[in-house]
Computed example of a mutant assay.
Amino acid sequence: MALSHYISNDVFDKLLTAADREERLALTQVVNSEATVPLPPGELKKQMSLAAGHSVFNALRGGEGISYAEMLSDACDTLKVEGRRSYFSSPAHGVCIADADRSTAKVPDGVTQADRKIAVLEYIKDHQKMLLSKLMVDLYTGLTADQRRKVDAELDKLAKDNGLVSVSQGAALLALGNAGGFATYTLMSTLLSAVSFGTLSFGAYTFASTALSVVLGPVGWIALGAYAANKLGAPSSPKVVRMAATCSMVYERLVTTRALQRIA
């Protein structure tokens, strides 16, 4: 199945095309840790899709990898995100997301192309938010007492800015993850920088690509690497989670700046 036949890969295409150089370099370094220049969007999509898929199934698919929606589903599976729907689940209109995603797959009568697109886009947005929320909670749980105090200060500010008052830190993390946009992007960046550097050097976050290259790059994902080594199991799992989470963060930045207005 050609990657272009997946509805979710329309989002993937637009995301990678709209991403800036530092974001694409961070993603390129997931599939090739020695890369010093980013892959072009089309080649990057191909390499990420292959890296996220199982080599045997990639061969059965004619050398193609998995779709963006399935990548998000696998990442959520890896992190054991509660309350999520499987990529192979059936939404209310009676067609599973996997079939809705494959534009060439047969679906029940009465299910329009618009229905399929809506179902896939909702699935993507829901799973991006759930993935980042779960990672936030996991990363926060692993902080030292000093790191947690520093993150709490940023968390309290973000919570108040988003209308959340007098909630537990765990609840605030989940709520901010659900809020999406700049709040999610800022908090995830703050957590990664806190765990990676022990301070909030990059916590007062802007969209500066110099900070982004550190937070989303190999150094910034030391925290996830340590977490993955203990909990994620399969060797490819940390890579899938890192790709999906980085894309989810970039998506939130692009939506916030209206760079992805047409698919948000």
Rank of each mutant, 00 (worst) to 15 (best):
Q261C: 07
K150F: 09
S213Y: 03
I124L: 12
V195Q: 11
G180P: 15
G177S: 06
S67M: 00
A172P: 01
A228H: 03
V137E: 15
T246V: 15
S49T: 07
G220Y: 11
T141E: 15
N162T: 06
T257K: 06
L200V: 14
D13H: 04
H127T: 02
L191Y: 11
G233N: 11
Q128S: 14
G53D: 08
K129T: 02
A98D: 11
I66D: 04
A234L: 15
L60I: 10
L60V: 05
Y205F: 13
T28C: 11
F207S: 09
D109L: 08
N9T: 09
I263E: 14
K239L: 15
L232I: 01
G177K: 06
K106T: 08
D161W: 08
G163P: 05
A172S: 06
A175Q: 13
T186W: 05
L121W: 09
D156H: 14
V215C: 01
A244K: 03
K125M: 01
T112I: 11
A204Q: 12
S8G: 13
P108R: 11
I263V: 12
A245F: 06
A172E: 04
L39G: 03
M188H: 09
A194R: 15
S236T: 15
E23I: 03
L232E: 08
A98W: 06
S55M: 02
M1C: 05
Y68P: 03
D126S: 02
R242E: 08
S4W: 04
T210A: 11
R258F: 13
Q29V: 11
L176T: 12
V165I: 14
T210R: 04
N32D: 15
Y6C: 07
R21L: 10
I118P: 00
E82P: 00
E22R: 07
D74W: 00
G220F: 06
R148L: 13
F202M: 03
L176F: 12
K134L: 01
N178G: 13
G53K: 02
S49A: 15
L191Q: 05
